[in-house]
Design a binder for these strands. Sequence first.
RNA 1: GCGCUCCUAGCUCAGUUGGAUAGAGCAACAGCCUUCUAAGCUGUGGGUCGGGCGUUCGAAUCGCCCGGAGCGCGCCA
Length: 578
Amino acid sequence: MNLLFETTLNKTLSEIFEKLGLDTKFATVKVSDRADLSDFQCNGALALAKTAHKNPREIAASVATELEKEPNIATVSVDGPGFINIKLKDDFIAANMDKMAQDERLGCGITENPHRVVLDYGGPNVAKEMHVGHLRSGVIGESIQRIERFVGNDVVSDVHLGDWGTPMGMILAEILRSDGTLSHVFSYNIAQITEFYKRANIRCKEDEEAKEQARKITAALQDGDEQYRAAWQHLRSESVKAIKANYAQLDVNFDLWWGESDAHQTCGEIVKIARNKEISEVDNGAEIIRLEEGNKPKPPVILIKSDGGYTYHTTDLATIKMRVDQLKAQEIVYFTDSRQALHFEQVFEGAEKLGIAPNVELKHIVFGTVNGADGKPFKTRDGGVMNLDTLIEMSKDKVRQSLPKAGEVEGYGEAEIEKLTSQIAVAAIKFQDLKNTISSGYVFELDDFAKFEGKTGPYIQYAIARINSVLRKAEANGLNVGNVKLEAPEERALALKLAQVHNVVMRAHSEKEPSIIADYTYTLAQQFSTFYNACPIMNAGDCNLAASRLRLAKLVRDVLTLMLNLLGIEAPEVMLKA
RNA sequence: GCGCUCCUAGCUCAGUUGGAUAGAGCAACAGCCUUCUAAGCUGUGGGUCGGGCGUUCGAAUCGCCCGGAGCGCGCCA
């Protein structure tokens, strides 16, 4: 089933272009920039005029003449320098809404070549508290995971824990320095572990000897020293517990909880492959793979440090090998901030040279850092970064102010109110992040994460709740949905907006860009609100009209709910008021 | 020093890859609850798209130069 107007129009245009001897490459329409003039526009004549050395208006006119014969097209006009403006017949649009309402995927198609894609996001570190800087990777990754699954890909997501580097040695060294032994380690909780890490971090920055000690312990740990391993295991599991709790609040999920440590065994294989292929060399005591520098200097991949340890280049390469061999990955996508761009260029080039991921697409989706008002990575006033927990609590507190207290509304006790609070607060936080283009980064405005008006998650939840309320009333009055009939301009605009959903999802999928969905979801909710204010549903007067509007409203509800789901945001049944 | 990314309304951001009159949200102002949830709707003001030159019938978008910001540049991850 194809419910997409663009596809239909592109096909007819293609036939017309072919018939007229025009390059069909330009036979495409897009949603009109001028809603006052048309539903769709084709700019092909303008582009074509250049190569064909013809007047664009003439080309456009000949295409328009053919288009006018199409039964589903109401009007065609050539405007300006050669824009072809197309308006569809109301009945055609309406019939498509009826079909869309009966399709369980709401008119959304699936990808042409379903394959297995491994997603690497989150990447939290052991012994470090999760702060607002960790928000983006998790929230974006979760959304992409859902989008990829929805379009038919087979997804495996991996949190890829930072559990194996020098920080592990640093924290063990710090504990030893303070306790003289590792025997107390097993009683330490996450707060204590984090404290040790903070102190270790400060110490190693100014004390070269401490740093050296940390490196030694790291090496011993990686070599399999039993005492270190046991202690490390505890640090790791305490951290994972805390990280899981954090992600659970945000509904961020992973199939695998692999970490850098899991790649350790395979690191040796990577080195072996490099040596067999004779692409590695020893330089200043380290074993490296030199990379083509092209127009810019590119540092080499370092497989083995001069102290004998592996680097994050090696673990990332080993991880790629594991994902290809064990998980049968056909595409691997990483989500990190832009500071790691060079790192992944190096790793991908290394993987290419090693031949460990033949025919596997390796992608690094870069997102901008979360910045403070000064344009630098976000810090709170006291210089630290804000905990994720604190952010969520703050947003929840704000939500509570607009909700009734437990027991004030029938059926809404402590648990129900708390759930609603969390759903709304998390929607506010996640949407605030997801509405931004991922590549560009954004300025962190604390207040925005506890805002529920305008372009926010709760605004969309509210639209859904209002529709639910209408649907409940309709059911109580025995009114059902019926065939769509478009009369008011608000109905027509809403229907055209609904018809865009497939395109929006596919674009978000191919660009790995959830903000495309966030933006659409918001504008759809907005169009609905306009419609809702202008067109009474239950009190439409005519019961066929009421049934038509009810179907449109329900369709909006379903599309909005699906879109929020793809963003990783829940839609509560109701939005109560204090 | 070299490289990457960015500069659009008072603030935060879009702008579907070169098209028509550059759009939202917030903030400001003026209206709208005896009718389906006002977390809403309607309207107003606000711009030499950092600056300059160029390519083009046509530039926020492409190229060059200048100014400003952020990030990254072999043994931290």
